[in-house]
């Protein structure tokens, strides 16, 4: 690359970065303004004075009980992650490393079921959960994760296929059971992939909106996404400076998690697209 090209590249990169960062920056900016200042025209760029009270106000609002909703979300997200990791790896192992009749069919179902839109299940699942007495509890949001998530099964199967066959066959010869191989060889070897699954299902549960919207009927069991929407749409409405403060509170944990696990994230996503 010559100088001119390099300059142009940098310029384009800066533009793109600005476009992608601006909404988040503006969110933080607005969250630190007084309401009157937030709606001022022309817009005030630097809030004056910095109004940290907005955060205290949001956190003190009984309609937005952050610690309660964060806890609810955390419980659902952690259990989903745990369930997805355990069940998906078991199933993936069976599809990749055990030879049995019908596994081709099961793999076909795994692939096909990724295409089925959630609304098809919405109503009958609601009925099933009602019969089980689960409506109003968080069970519908994490129990299904323990029955294998197609996308993660697919992902882990691809990982397991890259591990040489000889390894598991040798262990079998030594009298090791399949469970032993899975637990003692496969899981440690594919820990990065497993973490990807855990991270993704954690994020998926954290960001899920439609599921909690349908299944959680009691305010005390709401997750953050639903709580944020409720906070916005409550009678009388909520001002933008407070809404932005609430949004910052919800986004912050995700971004922290991302910065702690940046490599896992990027690697994980990168592998999803590869055959």
């Amino acid at each position: 690359m010559n100088r001119k090209q390099r300059l142009l590249t940098h310029l384009l990169l800066l533009l793109a970065a600005a476009a992608y960062a601006a909404p988040l920056l503006w969110m933080i900016d607005t969250s630190l303004k007084r309401e009157v200042q937030a709606v001022q025209i022309p817009p005030v760029i630097i809030p004056h004075p910095l109004r940290w009270q907005n955060y205290r106000h949001v956190l003190g609002d009984p309609q937005f009980d952050f610690s309660l909703f964060a806890r609810n979300t955390l419980i659902i997200a952690s259990l989903s992650a745990l369930g997805a990791m355990l069940s998906s790896s078991l199933v993936a192992y069976s599809l990749a490393k055990i030879r049995w009749r019908g596994r081709g069919l099961v793999f076909g179902i795994v692939l096909a079921s990724m295409m089925i839109p959630f609304p098809v299940f919405m109503v009958p699942l609601y009925r099933i959960f009602r019969e089980l007495g689960w409506i109003g509890t968080n069970l519908p949001l994490w129990v299904p994760a323990f029955f294998g998530i197609p996308f993660f099964i697919f992902l882990l199967r691809q990982f397991y296929l890259t591990i040489p066959r000889e390894l598991s066959e040798a262990a079998l010869m030594d009298g090791c059971s399949h469970f032993g191989i899975w637990w003692r060889i496969m899981l440690p070897l594919t820990r990065p992939a497993l973490l990807v699954v855990g991270l993704f299902s954690f994020m998926g549960a954290w960001n899920n909106f439609l599921g909690p919207l349908v299944y959680l009927t009691h305010q005390s069991s709401f997750t953050l996404s639903v709580a944020l929407q409720v906070y916005q749409s409550r009678s009388g409405g909520t001002s933008y400076n407070l809404l932005m403060a609430a949004s910052v509170l919800i986004i912050a944990p995700v971004l922290v998690l991302f910065f702690l696990a940046q490599k896992t994230f990027i690697r994980g996503i990168a592998t999803t697209g590869l055959k």
Partner: peptide
């Protein structure tokens, strides 16, 4: 194989 795939 079936036992492992049972959850799914």
């Amino acid at each position: 194989g079936m036992a492992f795939a049972a959850p799914y």
